[in-house]
Each structure stands twice: as structure tokens, then as C-alpha cells.
């Protein structure tokens, strides 16, 4: 995206937190301005037209903190007024809109995008990506979420007055997570515990989406980034014995969780907390966990009447 109109690609990012000590946990937007020769300047705080750092406006008291922790920022002319706008996701899953102003730059205060008469929202960690998904000339909004998947909010208004429909699912979120034991499956050999990453068939959680004609066939595709904890068998151990050990670990973990929940609101139980901590730490003696994330390619294909969604961004 070109934030300053110099025809060079700039990079805009949200962030979780101020660099300086702060009462509130609230993230600045950072921009890396493009330079000639495919280079970029160091990140600098993006400021509003009042010269103060842009910050998402707090929502209700209940969501004040999570609403200000920004995730992805996306810059595009959402209302077709000739000024670039900034749309940001946040920890709480809503979408803030800083309108671009005629003087250049962004309005100091954001408003919240609406969809189907309510605040537009995904299941935490909103991830806005603006693109004309349905080919009707206006910008629609795609998003990932903390629970995975890819979602579409179709713009049913106009280019100048965007109005979004209720959320539709493009890619369903994951039904479970690797290593989670599904209810009713008590046999260790039947649990979905797997090792390594070779078996993975699709994105996990905390998805981030990008739409473009990646393979050049004239149809929009999706790139989806994710986050996953990959489990590796320890040296000298077999997958079978590690599965059994993990099942036993999970059972005890759940028992401890239930005991802690039943004790909620009562006097602190130091012994129980200590037992929980020791048990939690003991997992590393059973398996090596690698936290990572991958990038998945979803090749788009036309359905229904055969009309192709055409890449235009």
C-alpha cells in the first residue's frame, strides 16, 4: 500500500503495545515508508492529522483494552472519496475505521465498522483485508480470526457509502486443534494427537488472509497464514508411547482444571496452584512443542453461474 502517494510501496502494521510505559495496553500503528531501489525506512509511528499517534478509540468499558490493541491495519479508499482510509483489526475482533481527510493523512478518531446493523466482529483478532470480492465495483471486507477460518463481509451499499452485510464464511475455522483430545475418545490410539507437521492439511488458528490472483489465472485466490503448535516426539520415545503419556497428562490436566474451577471464588488454594503449575511444566518431559505458523494457498475457482471473481487490487 502507498500511504504517502509517492508511488512506492509502504508497509503499515498494527502493534500490541506502546514502546513506552503506559497505563493502557494500546498499540500504535507503524509505517515503513518505501524508498527507491526496493528499500524501506525504519518503522515510524503513524500519526493522525492532529500530529498525535493514531490509536483506536475505546469501545464500551467492557472492551476498552482489547479494542485498542490493534492487529492488522489495511489502507485503502473505503468510501471512494479520493482519500486513503485506514481500517484496523483489534484483539477484540472488531474493526476500526480512520477516515482519510482531504488535507491528506487520517482523522485522529476512529469509528467502528458495522455489519447487518451491529458492530462488525469476528471471533477475536480481527484481520481486515479490503478487496472487491464480488466484482461489483465496491470494496468488500475479508478477515481471519483467532479461531481460524476466513470470513467475508459483502459491501451491499455503494462505493461512496459502504454498508456491510452479515458475515459469511469463506473457509471454515478448524473443528479442533492438533493435540486436543476429543470428547468420547478414550482410546489413546484413536485420539487426534499427531506429531510433526507432515500430516497438516489446512490452516489452524489465528488466521491472516490476503486475496489476490496469486497463480495468474484471472480469479482471486486466498493466502492464509496461521498459528499452530507442532508436537515432536522426544528422542528415544515412540509415537505410540508418547500418545499414551499425553492422554494421561491431558486427563490429569482436566481434573486439575475442574478442581480449580470449582474452587473459583473461594480462598486461594496454594497447594492446588502449585500442583497445577508442576503438572503444566511436566508436559515438556513428554513432548517437544514448536510454536510456528505456515502460509496456505487456496486456489479460487468459480461456482454457480460460472462468473469469475476477478482480481482487481
Amino acid at each position: 500500500m502507498d500511504v504517502n502517494g509517492d508511488d512506492l510501496i509502504d508497509i503499515v502494521s498494527g502493534s500490541y503495545s506502546h514502546s513506552e510505559p503506559s497505563v493502557d495496553m494500546a498499540g500504535y500503528f507503524q509505517v515503513l515508508l518505501g524508498e527507491k531501489g526496493g528499500k524501506w525506512k525504519a518503522a515510524q509511528v503513524l500519526r493522525g492529522n492532529d500530529e498525535k499517534p493514531l490509536l483506536l478509540s475505546s469501545g464500551s468499558k467492557e472492551q476498552a483494552d482489547v479494542a485498542k490493541i490493534c492487529t492488522r491495519a489495511f489502507v485503502a479508499d473505503l468510501d471512494d472519496d479520493g482519500n486513503l482510509d485506514l481500517v484496523s483489526g483489534n484483539f477484540g475482533g472488531t474493526f476500526g475505521w480512520f477516515r482519510g481527510e482531504d488535507s491528506g493523512g487520517f482523522a485522529p478518531e476512529s469509528t467502528w465498522l458495522q455489519a447487518a446493523g451491529a458492530q462488525m466482529q469476528v471471533q477475536l483478532h480481527s484481520d481486515p483485508f479490503l478487496v472487491d470480492w464480488d466484482g461489483d465495483g465496491d470494496l468488500d471486507l475479508l478477515s481471519g480470526s483467532a479461531t481460524g477460518g476466513a470470513f467475508l463481509f459483502t459491501n451491499i451499499g455503494s462505493k461512496a457509502e459502504p454498508k456491510f452485510a452479515a458475515m459469511q464464511t469463506l473457509v471454515e475455522p478448524v473443528a479442533g486443534h492438533q493435540g486436543v483430545i476429543i470428547e468420547g475418545e478414550t482410546d489413546a490410539t484413536e485420539t487426534p494427537v499427531t506429531f510433526g507437521d507432515a500430516h497438516l492439511v489446512g490452516p489452524n488458528s489465528s488466521t491472516r488472509v490476503w486475496a489476490d490472483d496469486v497463480d495468474g489465472d484471472g480469479t482471486l485466490d486466498l493466502l492464509v497464514g496461521d498459528s499452530i503448535t507442532v508436537q515432536h516426539v522426544l528422542e528415544g520415545k515412540s509415537e505410540a508411547e508418547t500418545r499414551v503419556a499425553l492422554l494421561a497428562w491431558e486427563k490429569k490436566f482436566q481434573e486439575l482444571m475442574e478442581r480449580m474451577q470449582s474452587n473459583a471464588g473461594g480462598a486461594p488454594d496454594a497447594a492446588l496452584n502449585d500442583e497445577w503449575q508442576k503438572h503444566y511444566q511436566s508436559k515438556k518431559e513428554l513432548v517437544r512443542e514448536e510454536m510456528t505458523g505456515f502460509v496456505w494457498f487456496y486456489k479460487g475457482k468459480a461456482k454457480g453461474d460460472g462468473a469469475k471473481r476477478t482480481a482487481s487490487n
Binding site: R72, L152, P203, L222, L223, F294, Y298, D305, R309
Partner: peptide, 29 residues
């Protein structure tokens, strides 16, 4: 979404290895 279809997802590779990010994860393409 009714008019949307994708082929099965393909994990992107670079130089023979899956494109992945450092711990704690969270890849944003």
C-alpha cells in the same frame, strides 16, 4: 458464502521447506 469455491489448501514451500515463522507463530502473508 454461496458463490465461493476453493481447491484444497496447499501449504506454500520455499527451497523445499514449508514457509514458516519463528516462535510463537502467527504468520501474516
Amino acid at each position: 458464502a454461496a458463490d465461493v469455491g476453493f481447491e484444497k489448501p496447499l501449504r506454500l514451500m520455499a527451497a523445499g521447506k514449508p514457509i514458516g515463522v519463528e516462535s510463537p507463530g502467527y504468520a501474516c502473508p
